[in-house]
C-alpha cells in the first residue's frame, strides 16, 4: 500500500495538535538542530527518524516540556509544551527494570493513571473509583496483550514484555498525543508489526496523534502519515514519499544517500551518515538544506 495514500493532513481549520516553527534546541552548549518546522494534526502518525545522537529523543523532550526550545515556537495541544501533559502519553527510550524490582507490572501501569496524585486514598472512600481504575488497568493491559505477565514483578519480565507494559502505561489515560521514543526497541519482528498495528489503530481510529522515534521505518511504513528526518543542523518533514527519497536525504545530509525499495516494498537507506562524527560550528547556519514541508 502506498503510504502517501493516507496522508490527508490535519482537518482544515482545526488547530494542529503539535506545531514547531523555526524551533532549535541547545544541549550542553551546542545546537543539535535548528529551523525545524513541523505540524501534526489530530489522528496523525508521525515518525521521527535520523542517525544516533542527532537529537530525536531531545525533540521528544522538548515536546514534553522537560527541555526548553532555544529558539522558535513550540505548541502542544494549544499551549506551551508541558502545560497539558495530562493528555500526553510518554514512553522514554530504552528503560529496563532491574531484576530485583519488586513491583508488579500492573502497578507500574497503574502509576501512569494516578501516580502523580498527592495524598493517599482513604480506605472505604471512592470504592467505585478504585474499581474503575482497576478495570481501566486491566483493559489497557489486555489491549497491548500483556495480561499473561502483568501480575509478575516487572523486573522478572523480559525486555519486550516490559516494553508492552510501558506502552500500556503511556496509553492508560487515553491521551490525545502519544510521544513514543523507540517503542519497538527490544521487540522481535512479529511483535514489532503487532505493536505498530496497534498504534496505527489507536491513532487512526481514536484520533490520537502519535509521534514515534524509530530507527527502522519499515515496520511502521504502512501506518505513517508524516516523517521528520533529522540531520546534523536541520530537518525535513513531509509525507514518507516526499521525504524518504534519494534527493531529499542527499540534500539533507550533504552526502550521497540512496533510498532503495525492495521487491516487498521495504525501504532501505544506503550511505546515510551513521552518527554526526564531529559537531563543528557548521551548526550556526540554521536549517541548511532542510526543505520544510508542513501541513
Amino acid at each position: 500500500m502506498d503510504p502517501s495514500a493516507r496522508s490527508t493532513g490535519p482537518k482544515s481549520g482545526a488547530e494542529p495538535v503539535l506545531s514547531l516553527r523555526g524551533a532549535a534546541v541547545r544541549v550542553g552548549g551546542r545546537t543539535l538542530w535548528s529551523g525545524v518546522d513541523l505540524t501534526v494534526g489530530a489522528g496523525e502518525f508521525t515518525a521521527v527518524l535520523g542517525p544516533n545522537g542527532v537529537g530525536k529523543s531531545t525533540l521528544v523532550k522538548v515536546l514534553l516540556g522537560v527541555l526548553p526550545a532555544a529558539a522558535g515556537e513550540v505548541r502542544v495541544l494549544g499551549g506551551v509544551p508541558g502545560a497539558r501533559n495530562a493528555a500526553v502519553g510518554y514512553l522514554p527510550q530504552r528503560r529496563s527494570f532491574d531484576a530485583s524490582v519488586r513491583i508488579r507490572g500492573v502497578d507500574v501501569v497503574r502509576l501512569g493513571l494516578d501516580g502523580d496524585r498527592w495524598g493517599i486514598p482513604v480506605p472505604g472512600l471512592g470504592r467505585a473509583k478504585r474499581r474503575a481504575a482497576r478495570e481501566r488497568v486491566a483493559e489497557v493491559v489486555e489491549l497491548v496483550g500483556a495480561s499473561a505477565y502483568a501480575h509478575r514483578p516487572i523486573g522478572q519480565c523480559s525486555g519486550g514484555e516490559q516494553q508492552r507494559l510501558l506502552i500500556a502505561q503511556a496509553l492508560i489515560r487515553r491521551p490525545q498525543v502519544l510521544l513514543l521514543d523507540e517503542p519497538l526497541d527490544s521487540l522481535d519482528l512479529p511483535n514489532q508489526s503487532a505493536i505498530a498495528a496497534l498504534l496505527g489503530r489507536i491513532c487512526h481510529q481514536e484520533g490520537v496523534s502519535v509521534v514515534m522515534v524509530a530507527h527502522d521505518v519499515n515496520p511502521i511504513l504502512h501506518h505513517l502519515d508524516r516523517v521528520v528526518y533529522i540531520a546534523e543542523g536541520g530537518a525535513v518533514a513531509g509525507t514518507p514519499t516526499e521525504v524518504i527519497t534519494s534527493e531529499t536525504l542527499t540534500r539533507l545530509y550533504r552526502t550521497p544517500v540512496e533510498v532503495l525499495r525492495t521487491s516487498d516494498g521495504r525501504l532501505v537507506v544506503v550511505g546515510q551518515p551513521e552518527a554526526p562524527a564531529l559537531h563543528s560550528d557548521r551548526h550556526s547556519e540554521p536549517g541548511a538544506g532542510g526543505g520544510h514541508v508542513s501541513g
Partner: peptide, 11 residues
Amino acid sequence: VDPEVAAGRGV
C-alpha cells in the same frame, strides 16, 4: 519506579 515518565507528568 519511573522518574522520566513522572517528570513528564509534572511530578
